[in-house]
Design a protein around this nucleic acid. Structure first.
Lengths: 208, 208
DNA sequence: GAAAAAAACGAACGTTCGTGCTTTTATCTG
DNA sequence: CAGATAAAAGCACGAACGTTCGTTTTTTTC
């Protein structure tokens, strides 16, 4: 029972890469088996249905996301720095992957938004958890006094994620070289609005 | 040659609806023919390849988008009202469709972002045109004095589209009932930042 | 090393896919 | 109404899909 877990891990690892390119639906057992030099039936036996494979692919990607984005950010000081860490971590996550394909969650989100079933439910749960992480960190930023007390943390989480989606679109589809600048600017404006006193802007830099 | 054009139009009309649910890749000739009670080969003859069908589906959706979103907004006074019209039009567009499925362009954007070829190129062109429309209207809003002169019109267009993508995600995947409020709030903040004097906010309402 | 259990294989299942040909049916033109 | 032309159907193809089955190979346990 040890060898089995090892190859299953290898399968899922590769399946995530493949799904990032072709989507969770486009992910096919045959192609996956071929690329891993396994037999289709041998691979299939590990999951017993495509649906459970898809769910485990989501879980695998989520675990990696937590390890690469969430956990490092949680190492930063609470409040605004931690929120910045999450944002930068997400950008790194979306950009870094050397294999082609964008963020699996973004791909799955539009692919599954109209396909009810357990796979969709799992994705929704994961996405809600991510938004919750953002909102929680935003809340502590308020508690720490980094942000105004009337800031709506959930709205801010939503807005931050929208900026990330915009970055994904601009960089991956349009290949806009300014995508990263655009995202950084939008992020800064959001933070700025959250921490600004009722009138006035922290945009002012050192004079010169 | 008159009947042919009519059925081709009917095919494309239905194909757009179908593609909104299953994507441009998931769109299949067989299913399309079945739902339209046509033979697979008869339908296929109209396009001679799936790829040209996909491109024509994109064009059909784009024509409808212009008619339902862009043109009505252009009827509004230039500058900020027109920009608001575009934004509200997009929300209407994303929400209104009675058949299930989200915005075809959002779906295609994620689906094709890693699939080079003529379909992708067409989509990129359409999306760039849409961002150009937004940026142009933003520019006239600057010229009209609605927005500050140092506003970056392209950045604003990018940010507006990001808000739309965020709305799409929240409403379609997460089924968040506050999605529309969230989008409206985000939109208002963007406009606010664009029209605000260097220090100060137009958030102030009538005192009370 | 033998027995038991787990993992991988190979072949086949019924469908569906996109795409060709050939033939029949419908529409348009004179 | 005839003849020409366009549109739809019918049929078949090779390939890929997810899934099942029975068998063989490998790994683990005693």
């Amino acid at each position: 029972m040890r060898k089995g877990a090892a190859t299953r891990t290898a399968i899922l690892e590769h399946a995530v890469k493949l799904a990032r390119r072709v989507g969770l639906e486009g992910l096919s057992i045959g192609r996956l088996a071929e690329e891993l030099r396994l037999s289709k039936s041998g691979l299939f036996a590990h999951f017993r249905s495509k649906e459970t494979l898809q769910i485990q692919v989501l879980d695998t990607a989520a675990a990696r996301f937590v390890a690469e984005v969430v956990r490092p950010a949680l190492g930063r000081p609470r409040g605004e720095p931690r929120l910045t860490g999450l944002f930068e971590g997400w950008l790194r996550w979306a950009r870094s992957q050397k294999t082609p394909g964008g963020c699996l969650f973004v791909a799955a989100a539009v692919e599954l938004d109209d396909r009810p079933g357990p796979v969709r439910r799992r994705l929704v749960r994961l996405q809600c958890e991510w938004l919750e992480v953002l909102a929680n960190v935003a809340r502590t930023a308020i508690a720490e006094g980094h942000f105004r007390s009337d800031v709506d943390a959930e709205q801010l989480a939503h807005d931050l994620y929208a900026v990330m989606l915009g970055y994904h679109h601009a960089s991956r589809l349009l290949k806009d070289p300014r995508a990263e600048d655009r995202a950084a600017t939008a992020f800064e404006r959001l933070l700025d609005a959250a921490r600004a006193e009722r009138r006035g802007s922290s945009r002012r830099r050192a004079p010169g």
